[in-house]
């Protein structure tokens, strides 16, 4: 910049180049920026608080629940305990055998959220691996993966999940690995079978897009192997979409559990346990009989979970994909 100091007055202050161009550049790390963008999304911010609260409540279920899962609010000999509307002894009312809905809801959500998180992690694990391999290797493997997922994703989910559930249940040799048809473990595997496909397509797309980028070519040019490129460059750069997919897989699995339970095909956690889906199944007869509390609380809990998790996913997407950040 000294070349232009030939003017007869040297006292013209040249502002720094950044300010001149109107770019206010502060060095903020991408993570910090993503973090800020996330909390600026009010839906996501509120949802995070609510989800955090719910998680604490369900983890501390033995403390936060007022009664045990199978405990009746009072003995039938002492007072009537069936189908009690919400009152001080049962905040959310009672069901047909006098269980406290509030306590069962907490225990049920505990099971369902566990199923959701576990199968989401499994889906993302499988999906990321398959998607990364398909995207990197291309060829026959890629074709087959894409073709299979095409068919599955276009097919009505409910039909497919019912058929696959029955099929897996019929394969006796799988039972030691994935458990009984009605077990929680089985449900986790079942939902992962459907969940990985969306993730795989996403990661594959991401890998294909990144493959064309200069820094990957640069890495290859200096002799990095495929495996190294994936681990060192592709995965860190796809972490945003994967995280979003993980979040959305959680609610996908929770609603799938509820839907299957609704048709009596969900997990049967057995005595001493329940699931959100099982409680929602009760809503079906509850609605017909006009026992509104059997409908409102479990359905409300599911909707609350769905809205919160979707908002969190939305917030993550906005925060982690700077391309979408248009500055307003």
């Amino acid at each position: 910049m000294t070349d232009i100091a030939v003017s007869d007055s040297d006292d013209i202050e040249l502002p720094p180049a950044d300010a001149v161009q109107g770019l206010t550049v502060q060095s903020v790390s991408p993570t910090r920026m993503a973090w800020r963008r996330y909390w600026r999304h009010w839906g996501a911010a509120i949802s995070t608080v609510i989800m955090g609260f719910l998680l604490v409540v369900v983890i501390l279920a033995p403390i936060t629940a007022r009664y045990g899962v199978d405990e009746q609010v009072c003995d039938i000999s002492v007072c009537k305990n069936q189908f009690l509307p919400p009152s001080s002894i049962a905040w959310f009312g009672t069901d047909s055998i006098g269980h406290d809905m509030y306590s069962r809801l907490i225990y049920g959500m505990r099971v369902s959220i566990f199923i959701g998180i576990a199968s989401a992690f499994l889906s993302v694990l499988i999906g990321t691996a398959v998607g990364a391999i398909a995207g990197l290797r291309g060829g026959r493997f890629d074709d087959i993966v894409m073709r299979v997922t095409d068919i599955f994703l276009a097919f009505p989910f409910l039909v497919a999940v019912i058929v696959v559930r029955q099929f897996l249940g019929g394969l006796d040799f799988l039972e030691p690995i994935i458990g009984e048809v009605s077990s929680i473990k089985f449900m986790i595997f079942l939902f992962a079978i459907f969940g990985w496909m969306g993730v795989a397509r996403l990661v594959r797309g991401q890998v294909l897009a990144l493959k064309e980028r200069e820094f990957i070519e640069a890495a290859r040019a200096v002799g990095a192997t495929n495996k190294r490129v994936v681990i060192a460059h592709l995965l860190p750069n796809s972490i945003g979409p994967i995280l979003v997919a993980l979040t959305l897989s959680v609610i996908g699995a929770i609603t799938a559990e509820s839907t299957l339970s609704f048709f009596g095909l969900g997990p049967q956690p057995g005595q001493g346990s329940t699931s959100l889906g099982q409680l929602i199944e009760l809503a079906r007869s509850g609605a017909r009989q006009g026992n509104w509390w059997l409908v409102v609380f479990p359905c409300g809990a599911l909707v609350l979970l769905a809205v919160c998790i979707n908002f969190i996913g939305d917030g993550l997407r906005d925060a982690l994909d700077p391309k979408l950040d248009k500055g307003h």
Binding site: I4, L14, P15, A19, Q21, G22
Partner: peptide, 20 residues
């Protein structure tokens, strides 16, 4: 040499003087 000024706060007087 140099770049055009920041139009958020245009310079006083002649805008070209920083490059003149």
């Amino acid at each position: 040499i140099g770049s055009p000024p920041n139009m958020l706060q245009p310079p006083s007087g002649c805008a070209f003087r920083a490059r003149c």
